[in-house]
Write a protein that binds this DNA or RNA. Structure first.
Lengths: 223, 223
DNA sequence: CGCCGCCTTGACCACCATCAAGTGGAGTGG
DNA sequence: CCACTCCACTTGATGGTGGTCAAGGCGGCG
């Protein structure tokens, strides 16, 4: 899918830590991330937060609403983001007349679902260290696919609390896990928000990461 | 979606605890559950298993393969099941020409995804007891939607180990949690595989269950 | 009757949460 | 230029949720 075609005119920049969409919204536009990182999240009555997806350049924020109407979760920027908006009505009409488009968007949804399944496996069955390793592998690979990672280095604009809410861990424990990963040489912090993975094969093994669930065409991107 | 239309000729019965599809398969037919309960699951190298969806009458098993080709997880019957099969090529062609069909199937995928997100929230943020309560609420409601639950009673053909692999708990702990739920009057076992929920509102509150993520049209089904 | 799968119970302990206090760097204002 | 604040990260101490191991009970079925 060519971004240039979809991007259209209404492109804007959004600062970090801003809600692009809130739970309960019924947006009238579809938003596409062109730059930066955002996340899907939900906040419970208890105040606890769960993040269940990161949106990278090329990802749609709210395709759901074309069919479901109401957002059942929020979307928030983690870094400064470039966002493009298109009236959802355009999608509504096009997907009816163009089976190919509906299928393309459906395809994207299926991959998102596969990622969610894998996160659920991580949450349910893997230890904190493995889970963290698995997440870092997936994040690096998806950054490569999106064309925003150079080699083994990626931008990870997340606080340890963000990571905790992603992995179902406390920020304190995330801190200790990251220290272990650094001590073992699995990762290196070049900078607060920049992480290098010296040996992707080793990190893969630790996290039991098998990228087949991402259904990539290009198998040369991993390891 | 009318089942009768899709069901076609090739309807068969499958015993409990049989794989309908295995991870890695590239099925050439699409399977629809007409009766019984099946699950999606993945088994890790460590031998641990995670279940991440239950398929009730009316649910498709493997729509994914229309687009993705390879199954990235398995599907297994939990009880005896009635299954209908249709060559996937039919779907492949129809979804191209019929935007409406592609959208209908896409819609189903979006709801599945919403359910997965909620499961992830449960795994990451809720205690074992809350998580179990939440699961039971969702399962009862989905049984009602599928027309296989009468009132507050449902068929739950799962062992405690199955439940453990669903909720990310050990079967020992599931046992103790169920005992608590019974002692507190949240559930009653009428029979090994039949559970009654005397007070759905109470169970909802315990599990912080809010059915809006299921995007149901009929709001009279809960509580 | 005897086997087998599932449920049940007890003992023990690991993983990870919570609480609390302290460090350090980036940005702000005097 | 130096407090001062704020936020993220760090570290230590303590304990709870839930895992693991092991053994026994119980019902269904060949």
């Amino acid at each position: 899918m060519k971004l240039a075609v979809i991007a259209g005119k209404s492109v804007r920049s959004v600062a970090a830590n801003q809600d692009l969409i809130q739970e309960g919204d019924r947006p009238t536009t579809i938003k596409l991330i062109l730059g930066g990182v955002a996340c899907r999240y939900k906040i419970l009555a208890s105040g606890r937060r769960q993040i269940f997806a990161y949106l990278l350049p090329g990802d749609f924020c709210d395709l759901h609403v074309v069919l479901l109407g109401r957002m059942d979760h929020g979307i928030r920027t983690m870094s400064q983001c470039i966002v493009s908006e298109v009236p959802s009505e355009i999608f509504h009409k096009l997907t009816l007349s163009e089976g190919r488009l509906a299928r393309a968007l459906w395809w994207a949804t299926l991959v998102d679902e596969a990622i969610l399944r894998e996160w659920l496996v991580s949450m349910g069955q893997r230890l904190a260290k493995e889970r963290t390793a698995h997440f870092l592998c997936e994040y690096l690979l998806r950054n490569r696919v999106a064309g925003v990672a150079s080699g083994n280095t990626m931008t990870l604009p997340l606080t340890q609390e963000d990571l905790g809410d992603t992995l179902g861990l406390s920020s304190v424990h995330v801190n200790r896990i990251l220290q272990e990963l650094r001590a073992d040489g699995f990762i290196r912090h070049l900078d607060k928000a920049t992480v290098e993975v010296p040996d992707t094969a080793a990190l893969s093994e630790l996290g039991q990461f098998d990228p087949s669930y991402l259904h990539l065409r290009d198998s040369s991107l991993w390891p």
